[in-house]
Computed example of a mutant assay.
Amino acid sequence: MTPPFLFYILYDNEISSRHEFCEACGELLEREGWTGYNVVKATWEGIPVDCCDMLDDHLLP
């Protein structure tokens, strides 16, 4: 389980919005320097949320 998956649990339980979820994931990836292709791809595996309209391409698989 990747750290953004914890944000997904909040989103899935309707505790946060899709916008808040995507923003938090993007900030975490940037802040931790997890922007390499394999890391980004692994981060989003198993998270069925489309954030392509909110995040830069380098933060999406």
Score class of each variant (00 low, 15 high):
residue 1 M to P: 09
residue 4 P to N: 10
residue 5 F to L: 13
residue 8 Y to R: 07
residue 9 I to S: 10
residue 9 I to R: 07
residue 10 L to A: 04
residue 11 Y to F: 02
residue 11 Y to Q: 06
residue 12 D to T: 10
residue 13 N to S: 10
residue 13 N to D: 10
residue 14 E to L: 14
residue 14 E to T: 14
residue 14 E to I: 09
residue 16 S to C: 12
residue 18 R to P: 12
residue 19 H to E: 11
residue 19 H to V: 06
residue 20 E to R: 13
residue 20 E to L: 06
residue 20 E to C: 08
residue 22 C to E: 11
residue 22 C to Y: 03
residue 22 C to G: 02
residue 23 E to M: 14
residue 24 A to E: 05
residue 24 A to H: 07
residue 24 A to M: 09
residue 24 A to S: 15
residue 25 C to F: 00
residue 25 C to L: 08
residue 27 E to S: 06
residue 27 E to C: 05
residue 27 E to V: 14
residue 27 E to P: 02
residue 30 E to L: 13
residue 30 E to R: 15
residue 30 E to W: 07
residue 31 R to Y: 12
residue 33 G to C: 04
residue 34 W to K: 13
residue 34 W to V: 00
residue 35 T to Q: 10
residue 37 Y to L: 10
residue 37 Y to M: 09
residue 38 N to D: 14
residue 39 V to E: 13
residue 42 A to L: 03
residue 43 T to V: 04
residue 43 T to L: 05
residue 44 W to P: 03
residue 45 E to C: 05
residue 48 P to K: 11
residue 48 P to I: 02
residue 49 V to S: 02
residue 53 D to I: 05
residue 53 D to M: 01
residue 53 D to G: 08
residue 53 D to F: 07
residue 54 M to I: 07
residue 54 M to T: 07
residue 55 L to R: 01
residue 56 D to H: 13
residue 56 D to S: 14
residue 59 L to A: 00
residue 61 P to I: 02
residue 61 P to W: 01
